[in-house]
Amino acid sequence: MPNILVVAEHFNGQLRKASRSALGAAGALAARTGGQVSGLVVGYRVGGVAEDLAAHGIPVAVVDLPALTHYLSESYAPVVAAAARAAGATWVVGAATAQGKDLLPCVAALMGGVCATDAIAFTGEGQEVLVRRPMWAGNVLADVELRGEIKVVSIRATEFAAAEKAGLPGSVKALPVAVDESAIRTRFIAFAGSGGDRPDLTEARVVISGGRGTNGDFSEIEALADLLNAAIGSSRAAVDAGWAAGDLQVGQTGKVVAPEVYIAAGISGAQQHLAGMKGAKVIIAINTDPEAPIFQVADYGVVGDLFEVLPALRSLVAASQKQGT
């Protein structure tokens, strides 16, 4: 049976929202292939994450070891491979996060399988399942055939509906896997978070991004983000200039986001930026240049200075919140 293993990811002891989308993608795949979907949680003190994953109605294997406290592809890939074998999985699915993109090709290499990155849909006719994925910064979509016993796919979380919790939770079972720490040649040294108290860029309902037009001043973007509990993003130009942290870059080579509302402030809209945000439900663009390409994808465009438009918008939002409308 072509079973499907979903590799879940967690951050600060919480199941990542992107992993719920990976579970949703696995469900869509199972509808085609007929296999059983199960989940895997790897880490240390991750029992709660495993329970949360199992609440979606799938059996979950958990590998909970001190040696797995910090994610490293060297230590995690063999664990995932062992779990995939134990589950009889021929498909391994995870989210195309930084971790997923790092880990899943290693899993494929270890299992002699084949990997596809950034899947946005499963296509093909009848028995044959093809993976649709973007190429050339999203200018082209390709339907690819994966030829191999083991197929490993990272999915773009914005393109698949997150799985819902089920009435009856699945089982959680510890999978006995040993980690040979002496064989690990990569060591974790430190992690420096950049987000502060703001919601995760890839999970936020509202994202406000700043570009070259901010001239390095993100204060108006921050003020509106505070009011809307929004995540802050940026264009590549703003990151390169050192105005925003690297992991806030929205685009094909950065983060791909699909919030309910995306506000692009002072961003011209290079192709690779558009590839990272055009999945947003509503796009608002603010730019002084009426010819900026961002206006072609924006649902609402305002030609103007972001330092005038954002404060004006903020007072309207504040007044509306006060009235409770």
Partner: peptide
């Protein structure tokens, strides 16, 4: 560059 920040590894 990882999700949510910067990570340092020693190889």
């Amino acid at each position: 560059e990882v999700d949510g920040g910067l990570e340092t590894l020693e190889l």
